[in-house]
Simulated assay, not measured.
Amino acid sequence: MQKIFIILIVAHLLSCSPSEEKESYWLKYARGRDIMLQEQDFSARADLDSLKNIKGLMALGPIEDLKGEITIFDGTVYTGTIENDQAVYRKDSVVKAVFLAYGSADVYSAVQVEESLKGLKKIEDFIRKKAIENGLDHEKSFPFYMEAQVEDLDYHIMFKEGEGMHGHQAHQKAKRKFKLNNANVKIVGVWANSQEDGIYTHNGSRIHLHFINEETLASGHIDDVQLLVGSKLFLPQN
């Protein structure tokens, strides 16, 4: 644990120039999604205990050994995993991450969702448009979150079993899939610049979304979702 703590903190310090430290928002990563899959190494790269003092921390990623999902909203850790073939959700879990996208912002600006948004592509386009309107550089990666009313939300919890190569087919098989309907959720998201999709996100996408439902503690990686009118997007403020 101490070694992971030192590696993560040193990497964070080295990646911050003096000018970056003065920024009002930032997004960083411990390892990257594409590197994890290329190297077939699913050991821990981030000890969440080492990040607990970061104010307003937002983060997402899979649990070490691909045994679940991690979502951090404003410093509170939520996890989803599989036990006895059932989804199990916890709050304030002590876990480690295979990779982690993590960041914070001093202040967020609220943007109303004025028409229903169905599908990740429409949500990505909406975020891009509103980021530009709010003076954000969409070629700079950033964290964001949403307070959302959802009609349908499809999600998965990654749960790898067995040994051997973990290729595309095995990766898809390891996704335990679930659905949430007509619920209020908080969505933790990251926006990747054009050079960092595949690191923070799936290749070809600029967003990566996890959610939490505070009533049930349900959480996981969003595969598809429909946001209803009245939802709010919170973007970092310059």
Rank of each mutant, 00 (worst) to 15 (best):
H168D: 07
L100G: 10
Q149M: 11
E151I: 06
Q149Y: 14
G164R: 13
M158Q: 13
V107K: 14
Y89I: 07
V98F: 11
V88H: 14
V113F: 06
K91V: 12
I157M: 05
A110N: 04
F144R: 08
H168R: 08
K129S: 11
V98N: 06
R128E: 11
A148Y: 07
I157R: 03
H171G: 07
L153E: 07
L100Y: 09
M165V: 14
Q172A: 04
K121Y: 08
E151S: 15
V113C: 10
A87S: 12
A170W: 05
H138L: 07
F144I: 11
H156L: 02
A87R: 15
S104E: 04
R176G: 01
A148C: 14
S104Q: 05
Q112T: 04
V98H: 04
E151L: 08
R128M: 04
G167I: 06
M146G: 03
Y155E: 06
S116C: 09
D125L: 14
S109W: 06
A131Y: 04
D125N: 13
K91S: 05
G103D: 04
I132H: 04
A97I: 00
K160A: 09
H166Y: 14
I127F: 02
H138W: 05
L120P: 06
S141L: 07
G164F: 14
M146A: 08
I123T: 02
K96I: 09
G164E: 09
A131W: 01
H156F: 15
E124L: 04
G103F: 13
P143F: 00
L100I: 05
Y89T: 10
G162H: 03
E115L: 06
A174M: 04
E133R: 09
K175D: 02
A97C: 00
M158N: 04
H166E: 07
D152H: 11
S109L: 08
D125G: 01
N181Y: 09
K91P: 00
H171P: 00
V88S: 10
D106P: 00
D154A: 11
S104G: 12
L153R: 00
V113L: 12
S104T: 15
V107P: 01
N134R: 05
E115M: 08
F142H: 02
A170G: 14
V95D: 01
E161W: 00
D152K: 12
G135R: 08
A148W: 10
V113D: 12
L180C: 01
V94K: 10
N134V: 04
P143K: 05
S93A: 15
M146S: 05
S93Y: 10
E163G: 01
H156S: 12
V113R: 13
F142I: 06
A110Q: 12
R90D: 13
E161F: 03
I132T: 15
K91Q: 11
D85F: 00
I157L: 14
K177G: 07
Q169R: 10
F99P: 01
K96L: 04
H171W: 11
Y108L: 12
G167C: 05
I123Y: 05
A148I: 04
Q149G: 13
S104V: 03
A110C: 10
H166F: 15
K121C: 05
D106W: 08
S116M: 09
S116N: 13
K121R: 11
D106K: 15
I123G: 05
Q149F: 11
V88A: 06
N134I: 09
D85E: 15
S109K: 09
F178M: 03
G119C: 11
M158L: 15
Q112F: 06
